[in-house]
Design a binder for these strands. Sequence first.
DNA 1: ATGTCC
Length: 467
Amino acid sequence: MNGKQITKLGFEKKAIGLAVAAAAVREGAGLERGAVLDELRAVQADPAAYLAGGVYAALAAELSAQHAVNESKKGAALLGAPLPYGVWGADLIEPGARAQMDVAMRLPVTRAGALMPDAHVGYGLPIGGVLATENAVIPYGVGVDIGCSMRLSVFPIQPDALKLEEARTLLLKHTRFGAGVAFEKRERDDHAVLHEGTWEDQPLLGHLFEKAAAQIGSSGSGNHFAEFGTLSLAQPDLGLDAGNYLALLSHSGSRGFGAQVAGHFTALAERLHPHLDPAARKLAWLSLDSEEGQAYWQAMNLAGRYALANHELIHARLARALGVDVLASVHNSHNLAWKQQVNGQELIVHRKGATPAASGQLGLIPGSMADPGFVVRGRGHADALASASHGAGRQLGRKAAASTLVKKEVAAYLKGRGVTLIGGGIDEAPQAYKRIEDVISRQSDLVDVVARFTPKVVRMDSGSQDI
DNA sequence: ATGTCC
């Protein structure tokens, strides 16, 4: 028996030599060439049946390995062209974000998608990207800050009744900002989310519990904020009369806990997809049929509840300090994946910096530290997968903002709008963001504006370069 | 986004 006959049977690479060697043994034992070829065909047809032992075991193992690689490559191949997807505010979106969305729309697990008008480049899926997949979840389709969210509390207080100095003092006393920060031990609050049994369901969660318990109620860094301002209702809504109210708006996420969950599972997804096209490496997914996919789903949802708990504590502390009950509140997550019916099929809808906007659903879309934010009500637009933007969106990256913006101009912008800033890096300057009015105007078919929030006293992380 | 390795 020679290599040519073996190759003709369809054996490849290392399997050729192993098949030749096994055939020589069988011919040596007196078998006719035709019978040996039949045996080789049988091994090829069902390698698993020959793995246990015998002359064909090594060949069967190699064939099984080759089969697994081929299946993996087949399952990881990108579509030749992106599936079509809706884009809102295309004139506001940089080409890089479109290119990232195009790659996401070529994943074999993708079924639908949309790009919101605040879109800009991120890791894997662009910020402002909405992606619907079938039976698969993409850790970087959710993002690093799992469960990043917004909360608004409206108080029974006239906006001018809270003096500037008192607002500053309250924010400094009751919020904590910065990477790695936590409340001092005696200041630490408790929350029901810390008493869930979920923490004991995975070693990773158990390991991260102490960090989560230490950081609960804190706000983090980057674009996270807590701010007092004026909520203006032109018409009665949210259970409130029309008018102006003192309100608190916060943007916070799942802190170190969520970041570690995201890092762990995206690395795991990448390892499980070694044959994924390098262009889509950061979009590696986990099947919801797999143990890993179920573990991510559980951890992601816990991080989502934890992030909302952070907001609840921030708002509870400040409401208590003000000595009032909250009149009305709105909250929404904008970095998360949800099970959602899309064209009659249950899909996994990832929103990475996108506000859920089902028909009638309330949401919050902030502008910047010195620009208005909006309470919106979703219109449930099917092509947008019932979503809207999560903010104004960056028009300058962090580095570009730090190198091009001038402190003096940022200070003038704040002064012109009567905004007092505590902390705040220059990379978060209003000039680093798109104009919120433009972004809102591009999505009038996705949401209706319910109310306007005008920031007055804003606290953010100091970052490396204060304004 | 996060003390940049779970």
